[in-house]
Write a protein that binds this DNA or RNA. Structure first.
Lengths: 126, 126
DNA sequence: AGGCTTGGATTACAAGTGTAATAATGACTA
DNA sequence: TAGTCATTATTACACTTGTAATCCAAGCCT
């Protein structure tokens, strides 16, 4: 069982995505990875890394003089946690109401729908 | 086209749910409706109502001495807005990745799955 | 050895949130 | 009419978040 994932703010998520993509990384590497994606000063990115560290969402290697950072939770784990609390808040806890609303409205490609159908089929036959 | 829905915080959502459920309502009615659901002092609820009003998410009837409050946006509209920004943040903007992850893991009842399947079928045949 | 540079540590500061309390005002009651 | 009670208005205060800047220390260059 996974301990509860701490809250990760919107900006912090951008940092996490970079670390999930590839880690450990130095602060500078994170800065580079965000070139063009987010428009933050390096100091800002540094602050976000520090906050994530303090929150224990990110770990730090202090062996070298220049630290490297790495995620302490898997991306899926965090996505699930966020999604769960999101659904509770917005859709009263029932996934289905959200799925229904969004599947009806959203643009899903043929392939997407096919994939979803297969997942449903698989689940049904379990 | 709907103007952009202002941000609604977590606590504020609880208030909105009450108003969507039934409105217009007085502050006191909102307080009653939240009995057992949220554990807030009446003053707190009042503050939240005021903030929602200031944000123009809620309207106020000041005709009577005791005001009544009502939503200025439909629930679906707000849900969609939240969901859109949520998916962008957490799933890189693609609905499908979330659906896949959640349909695979979540507990959906047979009926839920049947309903989803029907929605898919309908969309496919459109 | 004394600066310059670079990365880490500390500090800043306003807006938004959670969570109310206190003050002011209008209505009702004795 | 003065006090009380219910409402509305104003104020409070700490924590989080967005967005950095400043200060400090360790190497590096000359």
């Amino acid at each position: 069982m996974s301990k509860n994932v701490p809250n990760i703010s919107e900006s912090e998520w951008e940092i996490m995505k970079v670390l999930w993509d590839n880690s450990p990384r130095t602060a500078n590497e994170v800065v580079s990875s965000l070139q063009g994606k987010a428009d933050w000063k390096p100091k800002t990115i540094r602050t976000l890394l520090d906050r994530l560290t303090k929150k224990k969402v990110v770990g730090v290697n202090k062996e070298q003089r220049i630290y490297t950072f790495y995620p302490l939770y898997a991306e899926e784990e965090c996505q699930r946690a966020e999604t769960r609390s999101f659904i509770d808040r917005i859709y009263g806890g029932t996934m289905k109401s959200m799925l229904v609303q969004f599947m009806e409205e959203e643009t899903l490609s043929e392939e997407d729908m096919e994939e979803l159908r297969q997942i449903l089929d698989k689940k049904t036959s379990e």
